[in-house]
Each structure stands twice: as structure tokens, then as C-alpha cells.
Design a binder for these strands. Sequence first.
RNA 1: GGGCAGUUGAUCCGAGCGGCAAAGGAGGCGGACUGUAAAUCCGCUGGCGUAAGCCUUCGGGGGUUCGAGUCCCUCACUGCCCA
Length: 432
Amino acid sequence: MATERTVSSNVFDEFKWRGLVYDFTEGLPETLAAEKVTVYIGFDPTANSLQVGNLLALMGLARLQRFGHTPIAVAGGGTGMIGDPGGKTAERQLLAQEEVAANVEAIKGQLARFLDFDARDNAARIVNNADWLLKVPMMAFLRDVGKHFTVSTMIAKDSVKTRLQREEGISYTEFSYQLLQAYDFQQLYDRYGCTMQAGGSDQWGNITAGVELIRRTRGARAHGLVYPLVTDVEGNKLGKTVQGTVWLDAEKTSPYRYYQFWLNQGDDQVIDLLKYFTWLTQAEIAELEGRVAEHPERREAQRTLAQELTRLTHGETALTKAEQASQVLFGGEIAGLDAADIADIFADVPSSEVAKARFEGAGVSFIDLVDELGITRSKGEARRLLANGGFYVNNVQVAESDRSLTLADTFEGRFIVLRRGKKSYHLVRLAG
RNA sequence: GGGCAGUUGAUCCGAGCGGCAAAGGAGGCGGACUGUAAAUCCGCUGGCGUAAGCCUUCGGGGGUUCGAGUCCCUCACUGCCCA
């Protein structure tokens, strides 16, 4: 866990300063200042890992916990099931339940890096809404929950309204989603005294539905807080890149890629991201803001962001390795390294095995090999790229069109590092 | 059911007198410049071939022609208008 660095005396002010407050229910600031609340966020257990898109809500929970409030992470094991009703047998449904359970388990490990599950007074907890949603009888649900909602308010919610305007419309199942989420909130209130729900701004309608349900059925006042939607310059959700989703699981997104993802954030966004996602104080961030303004080319803010988040998500060792790899992959000079370094640094780069014998004597034609390994789509493309100076062997640009690769190009007879363009690497492993 | 418009390079838009490997743009990929950025500039963007050249592409099928993306017939799908 990171060290105690928070300075604001009041969580709400802290959230406000960090730009995390998009909307909130009336009286929330006062409640947060006056008492310790139990707060929850929901997440989808459809994968065995969280992703960058979950990080904002997660850090929000972590901040609340640090201020003494009690966090609950709710896996949508039940709501997830109705999200995809198409063509599944009962048997597979059961399997899906096991999968969800496995996913929840995997995710819990990740949550532990952010939330404290062992705190004395306000330990975090993770629950699965399938625990109650799968058991609730239809009649009881309609009577006890459905009764408190009018269809006119339900169709007035943004999420529903936009769908109704489209041609495809909305299924009854999905239309019911807000009731289920409201019911979740009520259940968490009953079971854990949970009186606050946080989430992305798109959750606002669902959250207030829960607040309303608790007020009507329990006569209690519950609260909601929603964060702004974080997007990149192109308006895409943060963490959805061309190469795919950025995951928190090292197996799905290597620490190196994770580090690079944050390092590559733009100047105009990096300060906001530091506020959203790190534990850095106001003073520290202000300092970095000044540095970005004066020397943007140094990218100190980006580097700090990448370091903080890689450390938080993957730990100190992984961070060190990611930084090392970054230096080599972008610094250029790799001639001095030994095979062990190469193996380590290029661990997450695509690689292929090629028989060592082929490199003996005159060696193998560069064009042929590159085509064979699928680095280019055709030999013609390979030739064009080479002519344009787009190929590198061990980070040295290939100049001759008839270049061949021999044992002299290898690291200890074990590896050759091919590179296409600026940063697309391919490791050749010699075998046999 | 009737009428009109359309379907183009295995991403998207989009030109295309019967001689076309097929204009242009976006995107993508390289290079230069840079801060692993943005902007800008240059090159590439069907396959095989060092090359001459050969092969394969314009919704499907059939036809006319020395030769068809381009003309004719037919089928399919899409969009708009009339019932």
C-alpha cells in the first residue's frame, strides 16, 4: 500500500479538487464529513481481470477508504447473466456461474492492490450480486421493488431514452436493469448498512433509482456520487486502444505495455490523469504541472504517472523491468547486451523459432525470413519497406536490399532482434 | 406489388468516353523532423518476380466484343419514391 500522502481534511474537497465529482446527491458532502459511510461500486465480472476503465472508480473507493469509509466492490454476477440472454442452455448457464466465480476470485487479487481487505475498522469487501439476484422470487420482486417505480420515470432515464429513439429499441430484460441495480443497493443497505454508491456518470440514473428505493422502502437516506467519463483526445474511453484493452492483469497486458500506455499520454491530459489516478498531493502535482509547462519535452509528468501506476498495479520489480525495457527499446543501442538481457527485455515481444542451421555459412535472406515470419504480408511489401529504410536488425537500419542474416548477427547464437519501423519488434529465437 | 438510384482496388469515402492494375481523398504503414508527442514534409499502400514481364481484382451468374469496371440480360442486396 502506498504511504499516507493525502492532505485534504475533507474527502469531498479532495474529490472535487481531483475533478472526480461529476454529480452527487444533495447532502453528500455533509454526510461524508459527519460520519463514516459504507460505499459501493459495481463492476462487470465478464473477464478475469479489471481494466484501465475500472481504475477511476477503484481509486475513488480507495480514497474513500483512506478517509475511513468502508468500501465494497460488487461483482455483477447476477446482472451480468441477464446482460446476455441469447441462446444458452441451462447447463451452460451453470458453467457461466463457475466462470463468474473464478473471475471474481481473480479480480479480488487485483483489488487487494488498491483496497485494504484487512483493515481493522473499515476492511474492504467484495460481494457478488448473484448471491441475492438469483434467489429473488419474481412475485416478491415485482411487489416489493417494481411497485416503487413508475414506467414514466423509468423511460425518462437517459440510457433508456436514447435506446427507445433508435430503431433497435430496448428489450424488456435490459429495461429492467435499473430495477436490479436499485435492488442491489437496497440489499447492500440491508446487509452491510451501505448508504452510498459511486460510479461513472453513465450510472447516474441507476444510482438515483437505488437511492429512491431505499428512501421509499427503508425510510433511509442514501447517496450517490458519479465520476466524469474519462476519454482520450479522440473521445474513446480511456484504456481502449487500437491494440485492444489495457488490462490490469500482467498476463493480459504486460507491465511494459502498461507503463508505455501511461507514458504516452498527452501533455494536455496528463495532469488530470495524475489527479484521477495517483496518490500524489496537490503540491506535488502542481510542481509537475509547472514542469510540463516549462519543459514539455522532458515528460516528467508522464513518467511520474507511468511509474506511479505501474508500481501500484504491478509492484516495484515489474516497474524496474518495464523502465529498463523502455530504455532499450527506445534508446537504440542494444549491441552491448548479452543473451540473458535480450531474453528478459524482449519477453513480451512477438517471437519465432528458426532452425539455427539456416544461419550458418551464407545465412538466410532477410527478405525471405521476414516474409516467412509474417512480419510483412508479402515479399513485395518486405522489399518496399526495406527500400524505405523501415527495417532494423539489432536496432541497426538495414541498408542492403540483399541483406542476409548469419550467426554473426546473433546474440550468443541464440537471438536476433528484428524491428519494423519505430517500435514494432520481433524476436528470432535460434533453435536446434 | 410499381418506379428510380446504387453496389469499384479483400478498411472507409469516391472518380471512372469499351483498351485499366483502374483518378483522388481518408485511414494504415514506412522515412525525415521531434519529446517514444502534435503539426508538417516525403515515400509506400493487389500477388509473384532483381527485372522485362506474368497472374488476380470492380455484388453473383450469363452474353455482346479482338478487348468490359465501363454495353446487354438475369439474380441478389441496399437506399429513396408511389401502393
